[in-house]
Simulated scan of single mutants.
Amino acid sequence: MDTTKKVTVETIINAPVEKVWEFWTEPTHIKKWNTPSEDWHTPKAENDLRVGGEFCSRMEAKDGSFGFDFGGIYDDVKTYELIAYTLGDGRKVDITFREKENQTEVIETFDPETTNPPEFQKQGWQSILDNFKKYAEQTN
């Protein structure tokens, strides 16, 4: 299993970058979209969006069978353009936001963890990103 290569997921959202940024970073919104599937939810989200600030989202199976905290510390924040952070286990994540004619391209690149195959991780992260796209496009 090759965990030395970064993994990338991406989507194009039919919304302006200002809305995408708000929905991506505000805890009230994070709790509504941050799930890979309908049987998961995020009951708690905290976000101190600044260099050196911390974030943490509690992701849980709705049946209570499993849950974990997903969090880290921000390394770089450029409003409407870039969020870079280091997860608690030392892995790096970069998220780029690019506005294109009232659409926003979101590209996430991350270091894979060593427990699950990178392709499995890519599918999970893409599912969450797809859920974000759906939420951002359907919510005013």
Score class of each variant (00 low, 15 high):
40 W>K: 07
68 F>A: 08
50 R>G: 03
77 V>M: 05
56 C>K: 07
87 L>C: 06
60 E>H: 08
58 R>L: 15
63 D>T: 13
62 K>R: 15
48 D>C: 02
39 D>W: 09
95 I>F: 01
73 I>T: 15
70 F>D: 13
94 D>N: 13
45 A>S: 14
56 C>E: 10
61 A>W: 01
77 V>H: 04
50 R>F: 10
51 V>Y: 04
53 G>Q: 01
69 D>W: 02
43 P>G: 07
49 L>F: 02
85 Y>G: 10
41 H>Q: 08
44 K>T: 14
91 R>P: 04
42 T>C: 15
51 V>M: 07
33 W>L: 12
62 K>S: 09
86 T>V: 07
77 V>N: 05
52 G>D: 02
65 S>H: 00
74 Y>Q: 07
57 S>Q: 09
78 K>L: 03
46 E>C: 00
47 N>T: 09
91 R>D: 01
74 Y>W: 10
88 G>N: 13
44 K>W: 00
85 Y>C: 05
83 I>Y: 04
65 S>C: 06
49 L>R: 03
51 V>N: 04
40 W>E: 05
80 Y>M: 12
50 R>C: 02
72 G>W: 06
91 R>Q: 14
62 K>E: 08
58 R>D: 11
88 G>Q: 13
81 E>L: 01
80 Y>G: 00
91 R>H: 09
63 D>V: 08
95 I>W: 01
58 R>W: 15
46 E>N: 11
83 I>H: 06
68 F>H: 06
92 K>C: 02
67 G>D: 13
44 K>G: 00
51 V>L: 03
88 G>P: 00
81 E>C: 02
87 L>T: 08
82 L>V: 11
76 D>E: 15
76 D>A: 13
59 M>I: 15
45 A>G: 05
63 D>M: 08
62 K>T: 09
69 D>H: 11
35 T>G: 00
84 A>D: 03
88 G>V: 01
40 W>I: 00
61 A>V: 01
85 Y>F: 15
91 R>A: 08
45 A>N: 04
38 E>S: 14
35 T>A: 12
58 R>V: 05
94 D>Q: 13
74 Y>A: 08
85 Y>R: 02
